[in-house]
Structure formats: structure tokens, C-alpha cells
Nucleic acid binder design. Structure first.
Lengths: 217, 217
DNA sequence: GTTTGTATCAAACGTTTGTTTGAATGTCAA
DNA sequence: TTGACATTCAAACAAACGTTTGATACAAAC
């Protein structure tokens, strides 16, 4: 091996360009030539390093998407630990901030939610990996944390649906940036992003509040 | 012209298969051969009737997606008119029902929101059409209706963000069916769909409730 | 019967696609 | 220096792609 240690430059550059292009256009709409051209390497490099195009796509999720998702989760936990972690406000606010103002750059956040949205609309082999490794455990963690701080006891399914509602909003405000900007007339910048975090937090908090609840069911 | 009146069978069949396939896989991932094969017609029919593949995609939005969106909106208005239309409950409940239990079949609803999600993540020429003709006016209508029934006065931007929050949830629960079913362990059937309508309605209503609101800003 | 216009068809067009090949280059141990 | 291995490269491969073509069928108009 030439350079086993440190980062293998070509392989890493391919993964970088591949992730960006797959997120922007989707798997089928991106050609191997486009990827290798952006990564400034030879066409055959993809097949040499990853076998084929599909394996490259899966590797993007394994070595890029999943670690990034972990970073976001870690940021959520830290943000929560820093606050008074016994209130629903703290949990929801930490969640919104982790996903809209967390450790990722705006570009990274866009790519991240674009890839996730793609997998949710038409799951590939990558979805199983993502669901098991990231989503399932994180939603469980959220349910536990919220369950321990919410005043009323909630059945598990209801708690999960609440989390989905919040998460749907978070995802939506990330992947539908263009549409939201277009329809509000506001440019997507730091100020508007802050506005969105506030919106998600306030809306979700009220949505979670089960004070005035006495369902008939 | 052979059969000007009635429906032009081949052309309509192409539009049908095209919409289904574009919704499922996206523009680039669907070949013209796949479409014409599903429509049981000759390969050249797409170019004869629509000029090229891209024009066919746009025509799917003009002649299929937009009319269907109008039907959903009409269903919302009727459902609202049938209820006591002076309460926020009525508006939100009518909205959720129109988009999850409205005039569309489950398949139609899935295709519809899949196509919309695609245009929101990576807008094509179709997006301008959709935004101007459908989204912009409908969001305005929602803002007006909600504005007239909500107890407190809301600034326009805040109202729009609230609507986006609700709409994000609606879209999410439609396009992320697979993920939601997988993570809740529930099959997506009529009963679960009812559960989702209830969830969206309750969550949104609380989210909208501005009773206990006294922001500092 | 002839003409005209619409629609469908099999076949072929030139590109682009993902993948393979074999030579060339560089690196390190023997 | 030699041999073995990892990596890069230009070139080529067959298959799939969107699109075009010219022939054919069929109806209505003259």
C-alpha cells in the first residue's frame, strides 16, 4: 500500500464529490464521469476503489452520512446537557438547534437532509442501514428523554407520532429551502434560519403540551 | 384528426404511466422505453405526442398534477363549508382531511406528494408553474381563513410559517410513509391514516394556539 | 379514386452510460 | 537491482439512452 495511513486522497475526494452530486441530483441522474471529473481523477477510479457505482452510493452513507448524523446527535446531547435538561423546552430547543444550527455548515445540512429525503421517498439498500443505525435509536432516545420531562404520561405510539411531527417539520424546513424562501419572499440566511428554529421550537412545544388534553377516544 | 373528441387513448395512457413512474423513480431514472412499454404503445409515441421527454414531464404537471391539486383544494373548501367554519379546529381539520383522506386514492396521494417533494428538493421548470398556480394562492387562502378565525392577530410572516409547519407535517406523513411505517411498526392502512389525521390536527391546533403567548422580542 | 392529415410502427441514428482492460507509474521490501 | 503490490491512466467495451426516420394504416374531405 502506498499511503495506508493519513487520508487516501483520491478515495476521499471521490466520496466528497459523490455525496454532493448524489444529494443534489439523485443516484441515477449522476454519472460516474461527472463524479470522477469533479474529484479530479480517472474514470476507472470509482470501480477500482469501490467496485461499482452502487457500492459507492452505499459507501457514501456508511462513511459520510452516518458519521455526520452521529455528530448532529452528539451536538443535540451536548446542547441538552448544557441547559436545564428537565424541561420539554430544553429538549425541543436542543433538537431544533442541533438540526438547523448544529455542527454542520449550511451546505452540509442541505446535503444531509437531501440524501435523507431521497431515502425516505424511495428507499434503497442504504435505508435499512440508516434506519437501524441512526433513526430507530435516536427516535427512541428522544421518546425516552421527552417522556421523562413531560408532565403527562403519553402512550408510546402517541409519543412517537409527536416526534415524527417535529421531525417532519425539521426535515421539511431543511429540504424545502427553495420553496420556503420563494413563498415567503425571504432569503435563506442566518437570520431567517434563526427565525425557523424559533418557529419549530415554539410550534412543537405547544403541539406537545398536553395540559388541556382530555380526549374522548 | 382521427378522434379529436373523447379521450386520446395513447396520449392519456402515456401521461398516466409517465406520472406513476416519474413519481416513483424521478425524471432521470425513468426511460422513455419504460414509459411507452407501460403505456402499451410504440417508443416513438412520446416524441410524436409531446416532442421530447422533458416536455412530457412538464405536461404531467400541467394536465395531471395541477388539476389534482385543485381537486384537493376544492375538497378542503367543501369540507370547511360543511363544518362550523368559524373555528381554527374546522380549518385545520379540513386541511388534514383534504390531504390525507380527501378525494384522492391512497396511490394518487402518494404519487402526488412524491412529485411535489421532488420539485421542492430539486425544482425544475415545473416548479414555477406549481408555485404560482397552486401553492402561492392556496397558502394565501389558508392564511386569510386562519387569520379570520384565530383569536389573536398574527403578523403575516408568522402566519405563513405556521402554515408551513402544518404543511410540512402533512407532506412528510405522505411521502415518508415507508419510513414512518417501518419505525412505528404499523402498516399504512385506513386505520393508521386516521390516526395520522388526528395527530396532525391535534398537534397543529395546539401549535397554532396563541393563548399563552407573550413573546419578549 | 384520389388526396390529405393523423397516428402507429419497426428500425436505425448518434450519444452517453457503467464497466473492463492492459499498460504505465510509483513505492517499498527483499 | 529485482520483484511484488497499489494506484492511475487512456482506451475500448457492450448496453442503454433519447431522438429521428420512412413506411404503413386508416379515416375524413374533395
Amino acid at each position: 500500500m502506498a499511503k495506508e495511513n493519513k487520508e487516501d486522497l483520491t478515495k476521499e475526494r471521490i466520496l466528497d464529490s459523490a455525496e454532493t452530486l448524489f444529494a443534489q441530483k439523485g443516484f441515477r441522474a449522476v454519472s460516474v464521469r461527472e463524479i470522477t471529473s469533479a474529484a479530479r481523477c480517472n474514470l476507472a477510479a470509482v470501480n477500482y476503489h469501490f467496485g461499482n457505482k452502487e457500492s459507492l452510493y452505499l459507501e457514501v452513507f456508511r462513511s459520510r452520512w452516518v458519521p455526520r448524523a452521529r455528530r448532529v446527535q452528539e451536538s443535540f446531547r451536548k446542547s441538552l446537557a448544557a441547559q436545564d435538561s428537565t424541561s420539554p423546552e430544553a429538549v425541543v430547543s436542543a433538537l431544533a438547534k442541533a438540526f438547523l444550527e448544529g455542527p454542520l455548515s449550511d451546505e452540509e445540512r442541505l446535503r444531509h437532509s437531501q440524501l435523507m429525503t431521497r431515502e425516505m421517498t424511495q428507499p434503497t439498500k442504504a435505508f435499512e442501514h440508516v434506519a437501524e443505525q441512526i433513526m430507530q435509536p435516536f427516535f427512541q432516545e428522544l421518546a425516552d428523554k421527552l417522556g421523562s420531562v413531560l408532565p403527562n404520561e403519553l402512550e408510546e405510539e402517541k409519543m412517537l407520532l409527536n416526534i415524527f411531527s417535529i421531525f417532519g417539520m425539521v426535515l421539511y424546513f431543511n429540504f424545502a429551502r427553495v420553496a420556503v424562501s420563494r413563498l415567503t419572499g425571504e432569503k435563506y440566511n442566518a437570520a431567517f434560519r434563526d427565525r425557523l428554529v424559533k418557529q419549530i421550537t415554539e410550534f412543537s412545544l405547544k403541539g406537545l403540551n398536553v395540559n388541556d388534553e382530555e380526549e374522548l377516544q
